[in-house]
């Protein structure tokens, strides 16, 4: 077992176990921390799948952006009582049933396709970061610009929605 496959299975175990623990955790703050672990492990897996740019974007956007916003949200929606916010569970049976049946279906479909088990991940001929930079400015320039406009709209919309100033 070389170091690359050791790291791959380590990251995969970290992502899967933190996602599994997120189902059972009752404290929202610990849940956010577990999600950070899962997302950082996924960034490591992206690097091993030769998608370096996606990995860096994942760390920047999720660990740097979304999780900070989520932790702000947790702190703003908790009553100041000193006690941690405990989350109740509901629909345990139907939720577990839906999740397990979806998982069984997906595993069945993936294991039926034998080419997935034989086909290994290997490095592309091109430099992925270089290629993404060129493609963003040529072939994908239209969705890129629409993404920029969407981010601006989401920024203004979130600020207006969360503001406490009374509108006439």
């Amino acid at each position: 077992m070389n170091i690359a496959s050791f790291m791959f299975y380590f990251f995969e175990f970290a992502a899967a176990s933190s996602a599994f623990a997120l189902i059972f955790i009752r404290n929202v703050f610990y849940g956010a921390l577990l999600l950070i672990i899962c997302l950082l492990a996924l960034a490591g897996i992206y690097v091993l799948a030769f998608a370096e740019f996606i990995a860096v974007a994942q760390i920047l956007v999720y660990a740097g952006g979304i999780l900070v916003v989520i932790i702000f949200g947790i702190m703003l929606t908790t009553k100041i009582s000193g006690k941690p916010l405990v989350v109740e569970h509901m629909y345990e049976l139907s939720g577990t049933l839906a999740g397990l049946s979806l998982l069984a279906l997906l595993i069945y479909v993936i294991s039926r396709e034998t080419s997935f088990a034989e086909r290994a991940v290997y490095q592309q001929q091109y430099d992925s970061v270089n290629r993404i930079g060129i493609d963003l400015m040529s072939e994908f320039v239209m969705p890129f610009e629409i993404g920029g406009i969407l981010l601006l709209i989401a920024l203004i919309g979130a600020a207006v929605t969360a503001s406490t100033i009374k509108s006439k």
């Binding site: 189902i23 899962c38 139907s94 939720g95 998982l103 997906l106 290994a120 991940v121």
Partner: peptide, 23 residues
């Protein structure tokens, strides 16, 4: 590493997310 191992992880994460959303 084979592609199937990535896909199994993706399937597990999606199912875990679905359970969290419902429960």
């Amino acid at each position: 590493f084979p592609i199937a191992h990535f896909l199994y992880l993706g399937a597990f994460l999606f199912s875990a997310g679905l359970v969290i959303v419902i429960v």
